[in-house]
Design a protein around this nucleic acid. Structure first.
Lengths: 344, 344
DNA sequence: ATGAAAGCGCTAACAC
DNA sequence: GTGTTAGCGCTTTCAT
């Protein structure tokens, strides 16, 4: 009966192999200048006993834990789950684990998480800040990569975000190509800065295309299906039926479709709906949701890579990934020539 | 300019407060028999410097990391994301962090994760095993709580799962109450044991209700929307159009709805569809998916609690949570009296 | 009530 | 190439 691997220390391996602690340690970390004999001996003992290095002790010396944190608003939201998946996949190959924190759009919760995270001594963190409260974390000079639209507010930090401006233009041009005018807009209200950036992109697009956007109809709502439904219902109650709805995220777009159905309005014949995210749930509705897709997995993937660079002492820059259009069934066919893409 | 909290040690606090290392440590861990003066002094210094205990060093001594692992097939699958959310919420309150591993239905991946997890010296793990390979982990006598249907294969381990048998009966009774006969079944094939349990429950129900189930039509498919669509398409190609489809999970049920639509079949008038999971995406389809819902968040929540009990040295038992029916739009109205519930 | 000292399991100088 | 030794930051006897 050999010792439980759990309780074996490097000292036991040393004794069993007739070598010293340090030599065993060297073999285990693949240091150069080790005799074949030592390597073999250690390998034997390890195989025999199932010994595993205690990573905690290693961490204590090296200061690195092999764990990074991912702080997102809601793991149960498909978009964020996809981002997590991307980061996760990238991390596995590096032998790194990911600690996921859902802040649930709650700044207090987020703060708790941030504290928990520096306490856990993670090597770095990928963060989508709910609000602007990054001050607490900045002082710990922990390697950080920002994701999402708040990146623009911290110009000196590494970040990866999707190109909202390009995405909005993509969507608005597509709407225009169906001969629809400016749509009404549904934006989330627990992601203020994201909404602002979205609307700003709309105005910029209008300016470039010489479209009058003085009478923009915008409704806020919670960042979920019910929020989208309620938001469109409010618009329907107070305005003429719009020709098109552009939601700043897919969940709200799905809600908008429900609101239309409830009113007996047909989509896309009466009202066109355009989403923003590209979540899988948009494929299963009738009609399927046409949407501007953010590269969610890629965002997670690139953010992780950037973070690793930063951890390794590199600079890690800012990255903007383009959006693409998932053409499905909630827009009418095109009637105009597609516009040339907007360039800055 | 005070020292960076990151580099401050308990020794610095000791020096600054004129106390000894040990006393400071005692104050910090709330030990009894400390003078008010010492408490005050330490509190001051901590407030002043922002000192934080190094959890890694603590872990090294105490053997506990304050981190638990959650191993699930796919974080991007809404059902599992919900489970994760439940566990997460429970963990926050306990000051515990959760390491999430997606095995992607891949036993090799899972094995990697399991190793990574014992290396990280987590305090315990909540696991939904892809296949039967739990041998590797059992030897580490790490506190473990199983979730999902495989729990039944490890009768001596703590577990929480949903009551498949009751859920299946619930669904089948509901189908029967609409005057529909036995449905065709769509089950996932990368979750063998779950599928078996599901079908077994079907047979048990048939026996209890005196229904002939000799000619059961069952089709396997990947555990996702496309898998469900393809599976039903295969059935449609080789059999008469069934009156009802019962999918072992919601994603496949959604796929089934797509297959029907593609064939020009109406749901629920031509074919009824019943799902199993209760994911949010089922609410947004037209018609919305009627489904037997597993208590996903609660599963995560209870699993975490059980795990904590086990970590604290308790036994932690086995727990089975009932399913409920989300009555939505993919079944025709009831025509028969509801059957009395099945009892064992 | 507090201090001194001995480790937790490992790595990294520093010797030889 | 390998062994010796001194910590990493903390908790916990054991004294006092």
């Amino acid at each position: 009966m050999t010792k439980r691997p759990q309780n074996m220390t490097i000292l036991d391996v040393a004794r069993l192999s007739g070598l010293s602690k340090s030599t065993v340690s060297r073999v285990l970390s693949g240091a150069p200048n080790i005799s074949e004999n030592a390597k073999k001996k250690v390998a034997e003992i390890v195989a025999e006993t199932g010994y595993q290095r205690n990573e905690i002790a290693r961490s204590l010396r090296s200061g690195r834990t092999g764990v990074v944190a991912l702080v997102i608003p809601d793991i149960a939201n498909p978009f964020w789950a996809d981002v997590a998946r991307g980061a996760q996949d990238a991390a596995v190959n590096e032998g790194t684990s990911i600690l996921i924190f859902s802040s649930d759009w709650d700044p207090v919760r987020e703060k708790q998480h941030l504290q928990a995270l520096v306490k856990s001594r993670v090597d770095g963190a990928i963060i989508n800040p709910v609000r602007d409260g990054l001050e607490d974390i900045e002082q710990f000079n922990l390697p950080i990569v920002l994701i999402g639209s708040s990146a623009s507010r911290f110009p000196d930090m590494a970040s990866v975000s999707s190109d909202i401006e390009q995405g909005v233009a993509l969507g608005l041009d597509r709407l225009a190509s169906s001969g629809l005018g400016l749509p009404v807009f549904l934006v989330g209200d627990n992601e203020r800065s994201a909404s602002e950036r979205f609307l700003q992109a709309v105005r910029r697009w209008a300016a470039k295309r010489n479209v009058d956007c003085s009478g923009l109809i915008v409704e806020n709502g919670e960042y979920n299906v019910d929020g989208g439904r309620a938001a469109l219902e409010r618009i329907l109650a107070t305005h003429a039926v719009p020709r098109a709805v552009f939601a700043a995220n897919d969940l709200m777009a799905l809600g908008a479709m429900q609101a239309l159905r409830n009113k007996g309005l047909s989509c896309p014949d009466d009202v066109a709906v355009l989403g923003f995210d590209g979540i899988a749930a948009g494929e299963v509705t009738t009609p399927a949701l046409t949407t501007v897709a953010k590269p969610s997995r890629q965002i997670g993937d690139e953010a992780f890579r950037l973070l690793m660079q930063r951890i390794e002492g590199g600079q890690g820059d800012r990255m903007t990934l383009p959006c693409t259009l998932y053409e499905r069934g909630t827009l009418p066919a095109r009637v105009n020539e597609p516009q040339p893409a907007l360039m800055d």
